[in-house]
């Protein structure tokens, strides 16, 4: 029991399997080389972009490409610093320490990807400060450890600038530590290609789905809070591919997901009807 209190267990290092094929990703500009350069220069990366434009896919792709493990944390408004760093737990012999996802990545290398960082509590972002400048350290006050980051550690955060609460945003002091990449939806031809690859749908229907998405995106800020991402198109394409009638598939996978107001949903159904003949 006496020994147990000093017995700070470190979690087992994750096995890195570098042989997984990278998930398909269609580059828009030079973001792949930029990300690689940021990694080699040990700079943290901030990715901005609307929902479903491929932020997470990009990070997964890059992790596989660089042969790194990835620790993804989806941030929410109750996410505390302890959820990222780690905590003490109790077992029959006393207490022991368990690394959080951030500490794991810092200790053993890999990408720590914090998705929708603005959702996290403000104190959470502060712990990233020492990690994201040239010190690259993570002080763990609960164990008294000051952890220097593994050479293969990389911090990636993302957020959606369009989706904000009146009082939520990223502090400039946090934002200015990162190399920022802005993501937007790919152009029509590339998006159709993505939809086709992801769902196996015919080129003609993929093109129609992209036409629909672009029409819906035109109404952004006026009628819709959120514009449809490529993900919604892929979902609809998969439904169509498995035999669902196109209009019905678009309604279920796209329009109903964009709004709860019956009037708006009906109006969006008209746009679907304009694109897909019944």
């Amino acid at each position: 029991m006496n020994n147990a209190s000093n017995n700070i267990l470190k979690s087992i290092p994750p096995t890195t399997d570098t042989h997984i094929a990278p998930p398909p990703y269609f580059s828009n500009e030079n973001e792949i080389s930029l990300f690689e350069q940021a990694y080699h220069n040990r700079l943290p990366v901030l990715i901005k972009g609307p929902t479903g434009c491929g932020k997470t896919r990009f990070v997964e792709h890059m992790a596989a490409r660089l042969g790194l493990t990835i620790h993804t944390v989806s941030c929410h408004d109750d996410l505390s610093a302890a959820d990222l760093i780690g905590r003490h737990l109790i077992n029959h012999s006393g207490t022991y320490w368990v690394d959080g996802p951030l500490t794991q990545a810092v200790r053993y290398g890999g990408i720590c990807y914090l998705d929708e960082i603005v959702e996290a509590r403000k104190d959470t972002t502060v712990i990233l400060h020492a990690l994201s400048d040239n010190r690259r350290i993570l002080p763990i006050d609960r164990t008294g450890e000051i952890l220097s980051a593994h050479p293969q550690f990389m911090l990636v955060i993302s957020y959606n600038p369009g989706y904000q609460h009146l009082l939520k945003g990223l502090k400039p002091s946090t934002r200015q530590r990162f190399v920022a990449l802005t993501f937007d939806f790919p152009n029509a031809a590339r998006e159709a290609e993505i939809v086709q690859t992801e769902s196996g749908i015919s080129a003609a229907i993929a093109k129609q789905l992209v036409t629909l998405a672009q029409a819906l995106r035109n109404t952004a800020n006026h009628d819709l809070e959120e514009i449809p991402g490529t993900r919604l198109l892929v979902n609809a394409a998969r439904l169509i591919q498995s035999g669902c009638e196109p209009r019905r598939a678009c309604q279920a996978a796209i329009t109903e997901c964009l709004s709860d107001e019956p009037e708006i949903v009906n109006a969006l159904a008209n746009i679907v009807s304009a694109v897909f003949a019944g």
Partner: peptide, 15 residues
């Protein structure tokens, strides 16, 4: 009127 307005904007009409 609202449904036509949304279609108008969706097809590129001025907001």
């Amino acid at each position: 009127s609202r449904a036509t307005a949304i279609l108008f904007r969706a097809l590129g009409g001025n907001h």
